[in-house]
Simulated assay, not measured.
Amino acid sequence: MSQPTLVFDDDCGFCTWWAEFFDDRTDVRIVGFTDLTAELRERLPEHYEECSHLITEDEVYSCGASLEEGLARIDDEDGVAREAIGFLRNFEDYERLREHGYRWVADNRDFWGQFVSKTPPVRRGLDRES
Rank of each mutant, 00 (worst) to 15 (best):
D127K: 14
R73H: 06
K118D: 09
Y48A: 12
E50Y: 10
R43Y: 11
A81K: 05
E20P: 06
V7W: 01
A81L: 07
A84C: 11
Y61Q: 08
V28L: 13
C12E: 01
R89D: 10
I85E: 04
Q3K: 15
A72L: 06
V60E: 03
G125H: 01
I74D: 10
D27S: 15
R103G: 01
T34F: 06
G32C: 07
H53Y: 01
F22Q: 00
T34G: 09
E77Y: 00
P120K: 01
E46K: 08
I85N: 04
M1E: 14
S62V: 08
D78H: 13
G113K: 02
W104I: 03
G125N: 03
A72V: 12
E77I: 04
D9N: 13
V105W: 00
E39T: 15
F115V: 12
E42Y: 05
G79V: 03
L54G: 02
G64T: 02
F115K: 12
D107I: 00
G86Q: 07
E57A: 15
R29S: 09
L97W: 13
S66K: 01
V122T: 15
F21D: 08
T37L: 12
T26D: 09
V31K: 06
D76V: 07
I55N: 06
R98W: 04
L97Q: 11
T37M: 13
E99G: 06
F115Q: 11
D11I: 04
W17T: 11
D75P: 00
R128N: 13
L67P: 00
D27C: 04
R73A: 09
R82V: 11
D27P: 05
D76R: 11
R109F: 04
K118P: 00
I55V: 15
E92D: 14
Q3P: 06
E92H: 11
G32I: 05
L71T: 08
A19H: 04
V7K: 01
D10R: 05
G32K: 08
D35E: 14
T56Q: 10
L71N: 05
C12F: 02
N90Q: 14
L36N: 13
I55R: 01
V80A: 15
E77M: 00
G13M: 10
Q3H: 05
H47P: 03
D127L: 14
Q3N: 14
L54Q: 02
R123Q: 11
F21Y: 15
T26L: 12
F87L: 14
D110Y: 07
V7A: 13
L54I: 08
C51E: 06
G113T: 00
Q3G: 14
G79M: 10
P4H: 04
H47I: 03
W112P: 01
Y61E: 09
G125T: 01
E77T: 13
S62I: 02
G79L: 07
V105C: 08
R96N: 06
H100C: 05
Y102S: 04
N108R: 13
S2M: 09
F87Y: 14
L40P: 08
E92I: 00
A84L: 14
T37E: 12
Y94M: 10
D11H: 13
A81Y: 10
S66D: 05
Q114I: 03
R43A: 12
Y48K: 08
V116G: 04
S2A: 13
